[in-house]
Design a protein around this nucleic acid. Structure first.
Ligand code: MN
Ligand code: MN
Ligand code: ZN
Ligand code: ZN
Lengths: 139, 139
DNA sequence: ACGCTAGTGCAAGTCTCTTGCAAATAACAT
DNA sequence: ATGTTATTTGCAAGAGACTTGCACTAGCGT
């Protein structure tokens, strides 16, 4: 893990604890966004002693610092978290059968924002875009 | 309410009960998608005696029949439901301050689907797209 | 090494949504 | 109209994700 993350934490009055470092390491290694429970399971299986509530509190803290992205995949009923470091803004597709989640390295919505602002008089902040379907193995 | 809805229900072996009709009437009248709790509150305030669990069960049944759309707005932590009858596929924007939800009568994703299928080898089923921002009054 | 304060674990609580079951009622046959 | 049957309902309890309270622990600046 980069030391810059530790510095970022310090600058915000936060500490780089053993458990927080473990959370960041697992998030950095993951190829897809993790739920709190999945993260907890990976940590526990990796012999990191941590409570689920600590996972939640760390995810919340890291989200507030802008170090992780919180997302909600279509009708999963839970949040997932992805580290931001070194990853562009992107979206996801999830298999309806096996649950596999794959990055879509594109965002078709930049042009659309101006149109929406014009039509609704809203100022657009964020957007969430997720696809679901059937992955190659489950078709 | 249209009698066609009653016929549709019958054709699926379902019944048009007093409570189910009341649910449909409130959904038809709403200008924005309602959560189960909001629907329950509107019914109760309108002197319809109904249990919250019955609201949930009716929403589930109507969703399975394709008569309502279930959607999840960004980070609300609850589902919302919209009647399909007479409404095209569309998306929403929600104000981060007051929670107002407005229809976006467009979908920019039809063209994108072919590209995603080509790149990921998934077969694309559904998508969910929601915006959030600041409405005219809350800016 | 010391002290302050952020962070942690455990327990309990909140909120949305689901399930089990007996009673009520809509649909339909007689 | 009356009876039969399967659907629907209400009440109670349960599931699952996430949050909060509080005493104890441990980073880290000095
Ligand atoms: Mn991703
Ligand atoms: Mn709508
Ligand atoms: Zn985007
Ligand atoms: Zn669309």
């Amino acid at each position: 893990m980069k030391t810059s993350l530790t510095d970022e934490l310090r600058a915000a009055g936060k500490r780089m604890t053993r458990t927080r470092k473990a959370v960041l390491v697992v998030l950095e290694a993951s190829q897809f966004p993790l739920s709190a429970t999945e993260l907890y399971t990976q940590l526990t299986n990796g012999n990191v002693a941590i409570d689920l509530v600590t996972v939640y509190r760390n995810l919340t803290a890291l989200k507030e610092l802008g170090m992780v992205t919180q997302l909600e995949l279509h009708q999963e009923g839970q949040f997932r978290y992805e580290i931001k470091e070194g990853r562009e803004h992107h979206h996801h597709i999830r298999c309806k059968i096996c649950g596999r989640i794959v990055d879509l390295l594109l965002c078709p919505l930049k042009k659309l924002t101006a149109l929406i602002e014009q039509e609704t008089r809203f100022v657009v902040g964020d957007h969430s875009l997720e696809f679901s379907g059937w992955c190659p193995k489950c078709q």
